[in-house]
Design a protein around this nucleic acid. Structure first.
Lengths: 144, 144
DNA sequence: TGCAATTAAATTGTTTACAATTTAATTTTA
DNA sequence: TAAAATTAAATTGTAAACAATTTAATTGCA
């Protein structure tokens, strides 16, 4: 087996599926004014109301180089507030706003829509990780 | 189950794993002067020697907006030549150079290194897609 | 105590991604 | 055959990602 053939790669399907999933989310998230990484931030805030940038980075595996500009954009859109901690001036707290809280109602139907788009039924969705290649071949045949 | 909790997402692990894999590739690819998407292009060229931008886009699921600047950088690095087709002036052919061909020898050991870094043995690697969450939880515990 | 080490964000610079539009060439069809 | 439709790349603009560095605050320890 030629280990440098694209078809023999196991990493490429993960990379391609990740972008495919993001593209499925995009139209739904666009309706509520979010990008996919911003949606991930909102999910953390819907659960916790406030987190530090550091904590957010640990949960999403993103560093401040990615998060700082992303959170500034979200603050401009009124979804959260960036507030430097008074106990430790190095720390920046990210606090969800009323507008951010309200957005949850508009987002609540998105996951079920994604399930429908990614797979034919819920059961198949929960086997997703086992079926990366199969789903990619479906997308592939749709595109050709 | 709260469908908007991060821990209940099935798409986030795919997104996180994809970035994790890229970060594992990075030091190896840096040694031979490639980024991960550029490495994907080289794999196509090592197999086919020449392709059109359109064909490359179909294989990698990337559009000309991504590929054009990426291919220009690779052409600057001498890995390939961009040559507009004479039969159809709309088409741009991407042709691998001698330097690009020679790079394959330097890349040939990378996949086996990745297997070792992603999983403990080759068998486990081939179960990768079934184990996304498990591998992510390993990475998670390493990071905390 | 006071200086070195560590830590948290921010900044800088480069490289993807990708939507939307533009440009130029080729096909189709009225 | 000439205008309309289609196609392939390129361009423009925005938003991630992330390495490397910088800034400023806090901790640790000599």
């Amino acid at each position: 087996m030629d280990v440098l053939k694209l078809e023999n790669q196991l990493c490429f399907p993960v990379y391609a599926l990740s972008r495919h999933i993001t593209s499925l989310y995009r139209p739904h998230l666009e309706n509520i004014g979010l990008t996919y990484p911003q949606y991930l931030v909102m999910m953390v805030l819907w659960e916790h109301q406030h987190v530090t940038v550091k904590e957010l980075g640990n949960k999403l595996w993103l560093d401040s180089g990615t998060l700082t500009p992303l959170l500034k954009r979200m603050a401009e859109n009124g979804l959260l507030i960036r507030k430097r901690s008074e106990q430790d001036e190095r720390v920046v707290n990210i606090i969800i706003t009323e507008k951010g809280e309200n957005l949850k109602q508009e987002a609540v139907d998105i996951p079920s829509k994604l399930i429908k788009e990614l797979a034919t039924d819920e059961k198949q969705f929960f086997l997703l990780q086992k079926q990366i290649n199969q789903i990619l071949s479906v997308k592939s045949s749709q595109n050709v």
